[in-house]
């Protein structure tokens, strides 16, 4: 082999030395931060941690997006059903983007008998990216999460799992804030087991019509692939002897009218319910949808709306406990 010139030798030695030095520092920092993030109980990251760290197991679990997070009042449902309830819906995250949470939960849960899935108009739309990856980044080695990212955001998957220290680029300020909160928990010797509201997020606000003023209407784009995946999630829950219940959450009639094909969304939900023989509770025509006082915007219920809706959900379950499917709440 040809002898290396002194300059090349210097370059190689320095390059290798620096790479080792940098890798040690960056690796320690990456792992250290991730560790403290897993100890945070704050907000959405806290919810993810509850499942990923196996710190929550209730009789009834609620999954979904922000619509479910602000709609299902866990304490109300708990007192009505006389079962332990936790709302694990994640803000800004359609159910299939948080499929890993269901997978992880199913892998360890011993207590759960019912999973309520809060549906919203975008539940069957095409997904292109994972929202706010900082919420689950600390658990990136989890096999279910890895698979979930691969299915939803293949480009992110490729970068996150192949580019060294890519977590630093993906992480946002909430990630570092959670690392700080986790560190604080360690210093104060605190552990977290969820909040008093049991995952439910209270919004004590009045209604604000969020439709655009130009009167334009939009179409909801549905994805066959997402619908098929959704069915598989339902089947997966059932295979663990847990009863899934699909719930079409109330959307203000102003919001419904903004979409040309809102009906199609409810039809898809009904179709999934029939094909998977799963119970569906439909609030798309409920009286709640007609009253401003129940909402803080077109898609989200406020405190009073959540209370009414949660009671209605319990009533519906109580009045038809054995009905496997097609239980619709109409004009209640």
């Amino acid at each position: 082999m040809k002898k290396l010139t002194p300059e090349v030798k210097k370059l190689l030695i320095n390059f290798i030395g620096f790479c080792v030095f940098f890798s040690i520092i960056a690796f320690s920092l990456e792992k250290g931060i991730a560790y403290f993030v897993t100890l945070s109980g704050d907000s959405q990251t806290g919810k993810v941690n509850l499942i990923m760290e196996h710190k929550i197991d209730s009789d009834v679990m609620i999954f979904g997006s922000s619509v479910a997070e602000v709609g299902f009042n866990s304490n109300v449902i708990e007192s009505n059903l006389n079962k332990s309830v936790y709302n694990l819906a994640i803000d800004g995250t359609p159910i299939l983007k948080s499929e890993f949470l269901i997978d992880e939960f199913l892998s360890y849960s011993e207590k759960c008998d019912t999973i309520m899935i809060g549906l919203a108009f975008f539940s069957f739309s095409k997904m292109q990216e994972m929202n706010e990856p900082g919420r689950y980044l600390a658990h990136k080695s989890n096999k279910y999460l890895k698979e979930n990212i691969r299915k939803v955001a293949p480009e992110l998957h490729a970068k996150l799992y192949n580019v060294p220290f890519y977590s630093f680029i993906v992480a946002d300020h909430t990630y570092y804030k959670n690392a700080y909160l986790g560190l604080k928990n360690v210093i104060n010797k605190k552990t977290f087991y969820g909040n008093q509201e049991k995952g439910f997020s209270v919004h004590d606000e009045t209604y604000y019509d969020t439709r655009s003023t130009d009167g334009l209407k939009m179409d909801i784009e549905f994805s066959e692939k997402v619908i098929e995946r959704f069915k598989r999630v339902v089947e997966k829950i059932k295979s663990h002897n847990i009863t899934p219940i699909l719930i079409i959450t109330p959307m203000h009639i102003n919001g419904q009218s903004f979409y040309n094909n809102y009906k199609e969304y409810t039809n898809i939900a009904k179709d999934i319910s029939e094909k998977t023989n799963t119970r569906l509770i439909d609030f798309s025509k409920s009286n709640i949808t007609k009253e401003d006082k129940y909402f803080y915007n077109n898609g989200h219920l406020n405190k009073l709306g959540a209370l009414t809706f949660s009671k209605n959900v319990c009533d519906s379950i109580a009045t038809n406990p054995q009905t496997p499917q097609k239980v619709y709440v109409k004009q209640k």
Binding site: G17, F22, I169, Y176
Partner: peptide, 22 residues
């Protein structure tokens, strides 16, 4: 010295990765 330089490079790279907007 190399160690000093590496500390500067490492800090700068991490700052760019952590605080950068991509």
């Amino acid at each position: 010295k190399p160690l000093f330089r590496w500390c500067i490079y490492t800090s700068l790279i991490l700052i760019i990765m952590i605080f950068g907007f991509y």
